[in-house]
Nucleic acid binder design. Structure first.
Lengths: 358, 358
DNA sequence: CAGAATGACTGAAGCGCTTCAGAATGTCCA
DNA sequence: TGGACATTCTGAAGCGCTTCAGTCATTCTG
């Protein structure tokens, strides 16, 4: 129709074509009750004919100061983050919760300091930020505050003004430890999530582990060690190994280290299901029977826990609820409401087939 | 300092505070060479003092007509999509490729027609769209075209004007089938990815399967069936089952159906590693030895294939390269360059331990 | 039938930034 | 010493849209 590659039509073009004001065209899209149905049809028809696909999202955002996006901040690269199925479940629940309001997710992968780079956060087009288990002191958190963005944190210490959802990491960990104690185990090993130690992977002193910049790691560790201590097992006698990666494959090297210690632990407390599965895979390679010679407990109860071989004893947390609540909190903050009291979801032990008597 | 909750400072506020023009402050952030180092420092100091965190991303986008985001469109919900590890790997490679240019990823999950809803696409703040294995005819694709957004498609039929990267699905599938034929198998089963049939999951006629709206599904199917046909096995004699879900857990019910057929196939051609793992899990439950009584071949060679028990024979495609190339293509299109010729990555059989003589 | 109420549309002021064509000043070399 | 050039900064025109206070008819109401 047109002679050459023209610029995209704007609202003004449509207004001119129909012979109405720009405000009317805007209303045709945003407030149908503000004009007659007849005129609205004319407008929409003209728009279609001109190839106008609706208000430019960026211009609309500027005028409304709403982008319609939620920034989701991760502590690591996408492949690292998504190698944990718990994230997929949580993220999907969050997306589902905010979808009816038309919010999209802007993914901000982590850099080197346990969160996305500050400049990425400052440049992100989002109305609200959700932090998923970032390290304490990650610069992304400062950037969010400086920008004045509402913030929801998941599994992190409470930030002033932010909304929070998390689970009872400490209680869940304690339950796992108690279960193994009840089965008569006395030689334990703890397979820890990453702590941002350097170099990563390998044995950790209890002190280093307690200084982890990740809140959930600290909490779970405390739950394990306190419970063992109550049973007379000194923290110094419990080897703690930091995972070399959070995927099954990535964690296997460090699982080897933990299982080749002498004396070998008879029971492993793992800070995620993936770590537990890695430990089981390594045990198999070493010819160890699970749970005959080694008991293993995971954490999260993500989908793979149920169909692993053998099915994994683990600490269940409601990942769907966690994501959904985070999404609802984000919407509330967007609505201008204040952050409610933090939500702490329960964590309960699910006994399957990877634990047995010592 | 200020008496009340003030509006956020703008570039003008900083300009006024320093006593320079707005353009100068803008230059301080975007073109440091346009002003003296001394003045620039003054500006930045004043900005910090006022709590100005840099140019408002939305306003900047409007002025530059660049959002700095890439829309990543999926055919399904996030949890469904991410239950396939191949996606994580590809997405991460893409993110890594575009990260140096500061691009973020806007995730658009799928709705009901094999892609994101059109209105979500029209409202998305992104400069370029990447379609990851959407169904043919998904309305999201039309929306992208109408908006005039540059498009990169992954594993899909070529769209005019779009850039494309994919793998040799047909050749890879053919290699898998040939391998099993060479091992002497004659009774096959095909475990297919979803085809958007209704109801989903269960046996599919060859004709229905060939009509799948997913390009990679069609290609792989053709690769399997043509190769078997060359060996004298009629397509009509090969049961095709559509997976009830793409995660291991989700696919297990339909795997049951496929493995309980009489006569039972001795070899399974699976359109993804996850489907293969689901089939193996079900075989185990049925007391079938893999590969003793059942040979299984996957597709993708995603990370879990390597450490599954037993390690999975599968068709390897370079997922990292796929993601990286998609990212590079996106950047090229952003740069105004034309879409180059489509890239077809090789797919080669990796023989591990889930296949054996019939 | 005057006045109030309703419905349909418009004018214009922003939203906060980038950018480009100058203006103003200073520097350099012939 | 005077014109050519750099260097540094500014004015103003957008980018495309939303929204609010009106304006102008038309329809109720008592």
């Amino acid at each position: 129709m047109s002679t050459t590659r023209r610029r995209r039509p704007t609202l003004d073009d449509v207004a001119e074509a129909v012979g109405v004001s720009r405000a009317t065209v805007s209303n045709a899209y945003n407030r149908p009750d503000q004009l007659s149905a007849h005129l609205r049809e004319d407008v929409l028809r003209a728009a279609k004919q001109l190839g106008y696909t609706g208000p430019n999202p960026t211009a609309r955002s500027l005028a409304t100061s709403r982008t319609g996006a939620i920034a989701f901040m991760l502590d690591a690269s996408l492949s690292a983050a998504f190698s944990d199925p718990a994230l997929s479940v949580t993220l999907d629940a969050l997306a589902t919760a905010v979808d009816p309001d038309g919010h999209a997710l802007l993914l901000l992968p982590g850099g080197d300091d346990g969160g996305p780079r500050a400049d990425r956060v400052l440049a992100a087009q989002a109305d609200v930020a959700v932090a998923y288990s970032l390290a304490d002191g990650a610069s992304a958190l400062t950037a969010v505050r400086d920008r004045g963005l509402p913030l929801v944190v998941i599994d992190q210490p409470l930030v002033p003004g932010a909304a929070r959802v998390g689970c009872d990491d400490r209680g869940g960990a304690a339950a796992a430890a108690r279960h193994l104690l009840d089965l008569g185990h006395r030689r334990f090993g703890i397979f820890s999530a990453q702590c941002l130690s350097a170099p990563r992977g390998g044995e950790l002193s209890a002190r280093n582990a307690a200084d982890s910049r990740y809140n959930d790691t600290r909490e779970r560790l405390t739950g394990y060690l306190d419970t063992l201590a109550e049973a007379g097992i000194s923290p110094g006698d419990v080897p703690i190994w930091e995972a070399s990666g959070m995927s099954v494959q990535g964690a296997m090297p460090s699982a080897f280290g933990l299982l080749e210690r002498d004396p070998r632990p008879t029971a492993l407390l793992c800070m995620s299901d993936q770590l537990a599965l890695a430990a089981i895979a390594v045990a198999r390679q070493l010819g160890l029977d699970v749970p005959g010679q080694l008991s293993v407990v995971g954490f999260d109860d993500a989908p793979p826990a149920r169909w692993s071989e053998p099915p994994l004893t683990t600490v269940r947390q409601d990942l769907v609820a966690k994501g959904r609540i985070a999404g609802e909190l984000a919407l509330q903050l967007l609505d201008g409401r204040r952050a409610p009291e933090p939500t702490r979801l329960p964590a309960e032990l699910v006994i399957r087939a990877t634990t047995a008597r010592a």
